[in-house]
Computed example of a mutant assay.
Amino acid sequence: MTRTPLLAACLLTILPIVAGCKIVKNPDPNDVAQSAAQMTDAERMAVLAQDVYEPKLLPYMDDKARAITNILAAIATDLDKAGETFGIPKASEGSPWNFVAKGQGVVVASNRTSRAAKLEVDVTGDSKADLTVQLGPVIKGTALRDSASFFVFTDFRDQIEFAKLARALNDVASAAIDLPEGDLIGQSVRFTGAFSLPKQRDPILLVPVQIAVED
């Protein structure tokens, strides 16, 4: 057999094997960056919030949480001293104090039908609400974002993007809440969460990262 027919025979043998193979390209980092660039601010911040919530934010909150009764007692005396003792260091002068708190209390009022669903909780035993636990999905404030020291404003493009991060974190926190149906009045709940307090007498609106009905 001459060289040419032999080469042709070899090619005929190899072609079916090649035809059955699928070439898989390695992921191009530029494609990932391009996909991110095509997202809206809200979409990008939603992805970021999901990515950090369980592996990073929850352990951080668990580590930083202080007893709510101690925080409330300190606030009643002096907000700034309470912030210095129990709060998260302020990002800038004039910012509200942010606190990460844990504790338990009795539900004395409830609104589970509103989109801004909430529980009013007594933690001091006087049958009066000491704080509001926001269940959402509409949650006010930026406490989750601002109490987490690893979120730094200068890491974000602008104030709009930073604000959307706060909203995304609230959305993830609300979606993670798993409580029994009903108003829960009279039930004891245990919680961990964050709240901001601009002034001493402002209402305490806590965003929970963990909340459960006590047995």
Score class of each variant (00 low, 15 high):
Gln50Thr: 13
Pro203Tyr: 03
Asn26Ser: 12
Lys118Asn: 08
Pro198Leu: 04
Ala49Thr: 05
Arg115Phe: 14
Asp126Gln: 02
Ala173Leu: 10
Glu120Phe: 05
Ala176Ser: 15
Arg44Asn: 10
Gly105Gln: 07
Asp63Gly: 13
Pro203Gly: 09
Ala148Gly: 05
Ala116Met: 12
Asp171Arg: 05
Pro180Leu: 04
Leu48Ser: 06
Ala8Gln: 15
Val18Phe: 10
Leu184Ala: 08
Leu144Asn: 05
Ala36Val: 12
Leu184Glu: 05
Ala129Gln: 03
Thr132Tyr: 00
Val32Asp: 12
Ser35Gly: 07
Gly125Met: 09
Ile211His: 02
Ala73Ser: 15
Ile185Ala: 11
Met61Ala: 11
Gly182Phe: 08
Asp155Cys: 01
Ile88Glu: 03
Ala116Gln: 11
Glu54Met: 05
Gln187Lys: 10
Asp178Trp: 09
Gln210Cys: 07
Asp146Asn: 13
Ser95Leu: 07
Val133Glu: 00
Ala49Asp: 07
Phe86Gly: 04
Asp31Cys: 08
Thr154Asp: 14
Pro137Thr: 10
Leu48Tyr: 05
Ala73His: 02
Ala117Gln: 08
Ser110Gly: 11
Ile160Glu: 14
Glu120Arg: 01
Asp178Glu: 14
Asp146Lys: 08
Leu197Ser: 00
Met61Pro: 02
Asp171Tyr: 02
Phe156Lys: 06
Gly136Trp: 14
Tyr60Cys: 09
Glu93Met: 02
Asp28Asn: 13
Gly136Gln: 10
Thr69Phe: 07
Leu58Val: 15
Pro198Cys: 00
Leu169Lys: 04
Asp183Thr: 02
Leu7Phe: 12
Ser174Ala: 15
Phe86Thr: 01
Val213Thr: 07
Pro55Leu: 07
Thr124Tyr: 03
Ile185Trp: 00
Leu15Phe: 11
Arg115Cys: 13
Phe150Tyr: 13
Gly87Asp: 01
Gly20Met: 11
Leu12Pro: 03
Gln200Ile: 04
Ser35His: 11
Gly125Ile: 09
Pro27Thr: 01
Leu144Gly: 06
Phe86Lys: 01
Phe153Arg: 08
Leu206Ser: 00
Leu135Gly: 04
Glu93Asp: 14
Leu165Gln: 02
Met39Leu: 14
Asp78Thr: 03
Ala194Asp: 03
Val213Gln: 06
Met1Val: 07
Asp31Phe: 09
Ala117Trp: 09
Cys21His: 12
Lys118Ile: 00
Val47Ile: 11
Asn111Pro: 05
Met1Asp: 14
Leu11Phe: 11
Phe150Ser: 09
Arg3Asp: 15
Ala42Lys: 06
Asp146Ala: 06
Val121Ala: 06
Lys64Asn: 09
Asp62Cys: 11
Cys21Ile: 09
Ser147Met: 10
Thr142Leu: 02
Leu12Met: 15
Lys64Met: 13
Ala9Ser: 13
Asp146Pro: 03
Glu161Ile: 05
Ser127Lys: 10
Gly87Arg: 05
Lys164Ala: 11
Tyr53Thr: 02
Tyr60His: 12
Thr40Trp: 14
Lys22Met: 11
Leu12Gln: 14
Val138Glu: 15
Lys164Tyr: 07
Val213Asn: 09
Ile68Trp: 06
Lys81Tyr: 08
Thr124Leu: 12
Arg201Asn: 13
Leu6Glu: 15
Val108Phe: 06
Ala129Gly: 12
Asp183Arg: 01
